[in-house]
Simulated assay, not measured.
Amino acid sequence: MIQIHATKKLLAKMPSQTTPGTEDILAAPQSKLGSWHANLLTIQRRNCLLFVHDQTRFPVFIPALTKPHFAIIDRFFDDALMNTLLKCDATQEQLDTAAVLLQPLAFVGGTDRSVLGTLNQLGQDIDHILYVDSLNVSEMAGYALSSSLADRPCHVKGQKDYIWPKDAFLELLDRLSGEVDLNSSQTDDQRALLDSPSEPIADNVVMLDRFRQTK
């Protein structure tokens, strides 16, 4: 399970199956990816989600969601994270490590002021970028924007030096790669696809069926 500390506005939007009780959260295995924060943004009258990794402040932006999408938000998060990593020039080992560690999301309260500060700043940055570049949020995937936001310094309260979310998250995946079995969550069919793709795949898109963990 991946804990997502959500704002009150986002929690009110999430279906009940994505917001388990405290006992369920504590009993469930926790992903080594660590916890995240998330906020609901209303941009150009569309619902968008912004996730930030607590430790590294790595952002994942998911634009233009409709009501049915919130019930399957795990799929959108997995897709957005993996393709953002690809845009960040993650290595195959880093991608494999992230994929193995993907687990169902559990949205809970209990937000941290420092991470909320990062969320708010990134939200303002997104508004500014979309306005300056005249972008339509309903026509974008969000991967390139997330990658751009990750490749800039971020101040974390209590830390003297700025951190670079992109570098920090990729370094985290490097450390975790030695702690996981990169084949543990892949079925025989998925491994076959990785070894022998049946058709050419664009080099700028992750085909998530090759990575998704059975949930």
Results as ranks from 00 to 15, higher is better:
Gln94Val: 02
Asn136Arg: 13
Tyr143Lys: 01
Asp125Ile: 03
Leu119Met: 10
Pro104Val: 05
Asp79Ile: 04
Asp112Trp: 04
Leu116Asp: 15
Val100Gly: 04
Gln121Cys: 02
Phe107Ala: 12
Ile73Ser: 07
Asp78Gln: 14
Asp74Thr: 12
Met82Ala: 12
Arg75Cys: 09
Phe107Met: 11
Met82Pro: 05
Thr97Trp: 02
Val100Ile: 12
Asp112Gly: 01
Asp89Ser: 12
Leu85Met: 07
Gln92Arg: 13
Leu81Ala: 04
Gly109Glu: 10
Val115Lys: 00
Ala106Gly: 12
Phe70Ser: 07
Leu95Arg: 08
Asn120Thr: 09
Cys88Asn: 14
Leu81Ser: 04
Asp89Met: 06
Leu102Tyr: 07
Leu105Tyr: 15
Leu85Trp: 04
Asp133Lys: 15
Gly123Ser: 09
Leu81Phe: 08
Val137Trp: 01
Gln124Val: 02
Glu139Lys: 14
Gln94Arg: 05
Val108Arg: 15
Asp89Thr: 06
Val132Thr: 13
Ser134Phe: 11
Gln124Phe: 06
Tyr143Ala: 04
Asp112Glu: 13
Pro104Ser: 10
Leu116Ser: 15
His128Glu: 12
Val108Gly: 01
Thr111Ile: 08
Phe107Val: 03
Leu102Phe: 11
Ser114Trp: 05
Gln121Asp: 14
Ala98Glu: 03
Ala98His: 01
Asp133Phe: 08
Gly109Gln: 08
Pro104Met: 11
Leu95Tyr: 02
Gly123Cys: 05
Val137Met: 12
Thr118Ile: 10
Leu86Phe: 04
Asp89Cys: 09
Leu122Glu: 05
Ile72Met: 09
Phe77Ser: 06
Leu81Glu: 03
Thr111His: 08
Leu122His: 06
Asp127Met: 08
Tyr131Arg: 14
Leu116Phe: 05
Asp74Ser: 11
Cys88Val: 00
Met140Thr: 07
Asn120Ser: 12
Gly110Leu: 05
Thr118Met: 00
Arg75Glu: 14
Arg75Thr: 09
Ser138Gly: 03
Gln124Trp: 01
Ser138Asn: 08
Gly110Pro: 03
Ile73Gly: 05
Ile73Phe: 13
Gln124Lys: 11
Gln121Pro: 00
Val108Ser: 13
Leu105Ile: 04
Ala144Ser: 14
Arg75Val: 09
Asp125Lys: 09
